[in-house]
């Protein structure tokens, strides 16, 4: 694998009941790259996503983050190493405000610890203030500034995904995994999302964008990887991938592109 890769998946496979969802997939992301991951339904995109995020473990193969193997680590350890995840489904914490949701995102970066928190030591107060400011900044970036004190479950679905993004950003990730962040968004929201992704890339965050909306991916991604039936069938610049007959075939075979 290339030295200095931000994310390197190597020979990863995962089967469910004898059927491979992901089969011998290798994937290398350069630091600061925005990689699109597309494929027809059932191509294995979500499984690969979960293998990197730690929601599933690979049967074989390795996953490395900046050279460190993370494939045997549970999801929370991966998060603390800098893997941020935005699920497609709304996975926020109801019963907490929007701001509190985002502040929890910084959990993996807090250092003052339990005792300091309980005793309300100055170190804890400083950290708490810092995190609150950071969380507010993340809410502003994702267009949720006006919702800070509302209960999280009151947000519309699209905004709940934006909340997940804000929560992930508050954890200051090195690698950000996004599962269909554009689905269900209106055109204006989609524009805002693509602008934000471009901004994050400029800040050096490596991103893997799993997306159904091929046009959206082609517009924002540096490079695109195409999965079909659990295998990588193409990889390259958006223009190359769009012109690849194998890709066109896969999409036409499974129905027209989205």
């Amino acid at each position: 694998m290339a030295a200095g890769a931000a994310l390197a998946v190597s020979g990863a496979s995962r089967a469910f009941g004898g059927v491979y969802a992901v089969r011998d997939v290798s994937l290398t992301l350069a630091p600061g790259e925005l990689r699109g991951l597309i494929g027809p339904n059932g191509a294995g995109k979500s499984t690969l996503f979960a293998l990197i995020g730690g929601q599933l473990r690979a049967d074989t193969g390795t996953v490395r983050l900046d050279g460190t193997r993370i494939d045997r680590l549970p999801a929370d350890r991966r998060a603390r190493l800098g893997v941020g995840v935005v699920f497609q489904a709304a996975r926020v914490f109801p019963g907490m405000t929007v701001l509190e949701n985002v502040m929890v995102g910084a959990h993996g970066t807090t250092g003052a610890g339990f005792v300091a928190a309980v005793l309300r030591l100055p170190a804890h107060h400083r950290e708490e203030r810092l995190i609150r400011d950071r969380a507010r900044a993340c809410l502003a970036r994702t267009g949720l500034a006006g919702w800070a004190d509302r209960p999280a479950e009151a947000l519309p679905l699209g905004q709940q995904r934006a909340l997940q993004l804000a929560r992930a950003l508050c954890g200051q990730p090195r690698l950000l995994l996004l599962d269909e962040p554009a689905s269900g968004l209106r055109a204006a929201e989609r524009e805002r999302l693509s602008a934000l992704l471009t901004e994050l890339r400029a800040e050096g965050i490596t991103m893997l964008l799993v997306e159904h909306d091929v046009a959206f991916v082609m517009r924002v991604a540096d490079r695109v990887t195409v999965l079909d039936l659990g295998r990588v069938i193409a990889e390259g610049s958006p223009a190359d991938v769009r012109a690849d007959p194998v890709v066109i075939d896969a999409y036409l075979g499974a129905g027209s592109p989205a």
Partner: peptide
């Protein structure tokens, strides 16, 4: 599930 994703053990 979401708690793990933000680094909570």
């Amino acid at each position: 599930y979401a708690a793990r994703v933000v680094g909570i053990d």
